[in-house]
Design a protein around this nucleic acid. Sequence first.
DNA 1: TCGAGAATAGAACGATGTTCGAAATCCGGC
DNA 2: GCCGGATTTCGAACATCGTTCTATTCTCGA
Lengths: 252, 252
Amino acid sequence: MPPRPRSDRRPGRRVTLSREQIVETAIAVLDRDGIGGLTLRGLAAELGGGLGSVYWHVDGKAELIELACDELIGRALEAAGPPGGAAADVPSPPMEVDLETSDPVVLDAVDRLRRMAMALFWQLDRHPWLAVQSQAAFAGGSNGLLVWERLGRPLADLGLTPRQQFHGSTALMGYVLGVASVMAEQGAGADRERSQEEQLEDVVEGWLADAPEELTWVRSVADEFVHHDDVAQFSAGLDLLLLGLVRQALAG
Amino acid sequence: MPPRPRSDRRPGRRVTLSREQIVETAIAVLDRDGIGGLTLRGLAAELGGGLGSVYWHVDGKAELIELACDELIGRALEAAGPPGGAAADVPSPPMEVDLETSDPVVLDAVDRLRRMAMALFWQLDRHPWLAVQSQAAFAGGSNGLLVWERLGRPLADLGLTPRQQFHGSTALMGYVLGVASVMAEQGAGADRERSQEEQLEDVVEGWLADAPEELTWVRSVADEFVHHDDVAQFSAGLDLLLLGLVRQALAG
DNA sequence: TCGAGAATAGAACGATGTTCGAAATCCGGC
DNA sequence: GCCGGATTTCGAACATCGTTCTATTCTCGA
């Protein structure tokens, strides 16, 4: 067939976009299709607008992802509640290690650290693409600095030296991002249809088929891996780090 | 001008490639230009061969990166020395925390954990692109499982419960990958001409310019950040985790 | 010598990020 | 009410990249 005799649709405005709306939709797409599924063309289509329009509001794909990360980190900050200490909208399993102290200052500091770390992880776990990307965004985005501040303050209250505070804060940050990243990659090719444990069983089977003998320890924990719980696993490791920090503070 | 009357260069063999050579060159390119600088065309050119030839030896870009990661993880495993306990070719700063025990079994287990973690970090620090990519490769590649095995054995020797072993091993893995990833991203846009401290000063200046007040703690550690040492920083956080593990083991 | 498999080479395809100029819309001043 | 500049939209066009496909060349044993 011939092209339309007259193009009754020439370039021009159709919908109105906003920076916030674009970031919002980008987050939705990222949650649905993962980092590889975010396409500027697809995003524009989802918004009902043109490709060039997106570029007018956002500088490029890199900045868009940075904005999305900063937005979610901000929500984590919000979910952690005020620094003072009100309860937050994040899971908070009880500590499973004995801190061997009843100093209220120490216990309060540990509680604040725990709340911030859990809130951050909670957000990273619900947006698996975020963990990998945010490692860059933490230094750039403004909310990343706020998180760092809220991790550092309690460390100062513990009486650690400035260097210990610095090392402790980066250790916590690295731990949170690292565990979340590994979990995100691990659940990357997940199939929403089948149960998680069933899929993990297949993963383990794939491991143990290729490299059979010698890996006796890995085999011994395969069962733990299949039946693991992300939050509990993260919380357990976090407790170890916090216990180390407390011991370091009390020994100083 | 007309095309050449006779193409005296028709497709055919010119150079001979091998899978190992391709992976080796890919690692070199990744080290030089980062993850964004690795292009299959560029890689083929660097090898002096054609694009299709690379595809005959390697299944695609994803597999190539996986192979490169597994290769370097294997080298980290090698650098860690035999599980028995010989010295290795990696830095090993002394522990700065007091484990408060002299049990030889515990001390030996901690030593093995420390050596494996340091060897892994040493490799991740020297190949900044590796940290981010390897999070996926650890589950897939065979060497990733070997690392996990070598992290798990000492945890079993500490007398931890199976669940504690599992949580401890993933905590260590997450910590190593996380800290290395953050450091890699932080030094991403590095300029080889200027000194590192000078560049870090600029980074800090950028932070503190945008979000001035309130971030009192971040300001207080800015100096530590500028003069930090990657290995020392990693080692300090690792010690905290190990201390926590030891205390957990002794308390059980 | 020759023929089948191994290996190389590069054109071609589709998708993607980015740039660019033209068009439509909005809005304050007259 | 209308006009003109600033704002915002739109999609074509370009360059690059991963991947596929086929023709060609090389190797080596019968």
